[in-house]
Design a protein around this nucleic acid. Structure first.
Lengths: 295, 295
DNA sequence: TCCCGTTCATCAAAATTCGTGATGGGACTT
DNA sequence: AAGTCCCATCACGAATTTTGATGAACGGGA
């Protein structure tokens, strides 16, 4: 039996892909830069192809690197799943965790119930803010771990879930047929750019009718027919009507949900929470890239 | 970052689970028995739970072992997928490959096209026989690699696919309402036991009306309304009618497709073919056991 | 343009890990 | 009861990996 790949190497590889840097990746995986460098060297030798193109200061995935990345991620996710399952409740500490409030509704039950059950000694300090503010807060050292939606300014983090975005209106409301189209969205919400860009693309007129950083407020605006909203699948609420995309409204780009950690937040309790979230909510473990031959 | 698990250990673990023996597993993964033993020891220490119950001469998976097994398999499958993708066409040799003829129809195109494209120097010698004969042939050293359907006599091999079994008849035929029910099936076909057992369970009378080790012959018998057949999903053919299970016919057990290797057939070209088959046809990589918490 | 800081590759030595072969004990067979 | 098969253990040696230092390439700022 040909020996299987070394997950440790793959982890380093993925870390590099995620943060675009050997040095930073080394910090994340608790190794020296040279160790990571040699791991990648061995991995490339093993597979017989360069995986990362070191071009000046930037490190990018080669075509083969891309192919490897998605598979390696899948393996690491399963690895997480296992670790999560077998970790006894002996970890202790506290984690400052940030999440957009629209997602909090979904995440909190998962975290508080199953995570607290398996890790009763870990205190999770939850704060809700819009994605952009979460990332700012992370830079200022206010968070250890943050779940956010990837905006146009591509922040580095581990992508673990994508969701369909939908246009929504109230049942039987008028907002949809109003001209210009009244929109409701978070002020700095990265989905807004998505929606606005999509509307510009087809030349549809619109106006921002309602803005708030509170997801409930947006939802209310939609439900009371004040405006049309744009929400990810999991934020849909009863009473909302999903607009088919073949109307005058264009298809929205999928929302990409990622997890980001402070540079110190690797290992131990942070892994436990991160892997728990990824295992519970991730939808990318499966068939995101099945036909390998087709690549 | 807590170090990830060692795939090499997991491979040994799975090998033991597959063949129920440390010693035999060691042979398969090209290690000594003591090496494998120590690997498992380290793995169990790492996860904090016994994974295998050594009870006298038999080795069985513990509950935790079961949980680990399916995940480890998934990881190994992805590992295979990667190896398959990156292996250049530099492997050479020949493989004596056996497959039941009903499956050959499905497998041959896959193997001959994509496999031969990526491994032009490997000659695959295909022989078609019923599963039982394949296993006999394997014992006699006539095959290196065999794909077969698990019968009641549980042979050890790596399970990589399950398929729904269906009762089939010809469109508009009489066979279905004939008493006793005329059946068509392979003489030693392990599905026959499945079908017969299922019929006995509900006390339905039957007779074996037609028997052949050739799948085409069975198919013809069904299509010409000579008898009712029982086939896995992938062997269904146009012109056949699938009988709903709520009729007088009981639900059949799923067919379990496994791969078995001669003891020498590990590594190199054998891995290449086996992983290719598993990657192309396996349907067990996905969500076979998603809710880990529920276990 | 010329530094200076950063980044990645490389090297030899050190440390760690891992596998081997021999050995022992327990269980099933005959 | 002897023989056989199987797994656990141990000490030693081999192979692999990490480290810390160093060098080379690149880019930004003055």
């Amino acid at each position: 039996m040909t020996a299987p790949l070394d997950l440790d190497q793959l982890q380093s590889f993925c870390a590099i892909a995620d943060c675009g840097s050997f040095t930073e990746a080394a910090r994340r995986v608790n190794k020296t830069q040279s160790a990571v460098s040699m791991q990648i060297k061995r991995l490339e030798e093993r597979l017989g192809h360069p995986l990362l193109s070191r071009d000046g200061r930037t490190v990018a995935l080669t075509e083969h690197g891309e192919a490897l990345y998605s598979r390696a991620r899948r393996m690491l996710r399963i690895n997480f799943e296992i670790m999560d399952h077998f970790s006894d409740g002996d970890l202790k500490g506290s984690i400052r965790f940030g999440v957009p409030d629209d997602y909090a509704v979904r995440l909190l039950p998962v975290i508080l119930s199953s995570f607290q059950r398996t890790h009763p000694k870990i205190v999770v300090d939850v704060r809700c803010q819009p994605s952009e503010e979460l990332l700012e807060g992370m830079k200022k050292g206010k968070y250890d771990l943050v779940v956010f939606t990837q905006g146009t300014n591509h922040e580095y983090g581990e992508l673990f879930r994508t969701e369909r975005m939908f246009w929504v209106a109230s049942h039987g409301g008028q907002a949809l047929s109003t001209e210009p189209l009244p929109l409701a969205g978070g002020l700095h919400c990265c989905w807004k750019d998505n929606a606005v860009e999509a509307l510009n693309r087809i030349g549809r007129d619109y106006r921002i009718a309602y803005t708030s950083s509170n997801a409930m407020a947006i939802a209310s605006a939609v439900l009371t027919d004040l405006a049309v909203g744009f929400l990810p699948e999991s934020a849909l609420q009863p009473g909302m009507r999903v607009i088919a995309e073949d109307r005058d409204l264009p298809r929205l780009r999928d929302a990409e949900i990622a997890i980001m950690r402070a540079s110190h937040a690797y290992g131990g309790i942070y892994d436990a929470l991160a892997s728990h979230i990824v295992a519970s909510m991730g939808n990318l473990d499966g068939r995101d890239a099945l036909p390998m031959a087709a690549e």
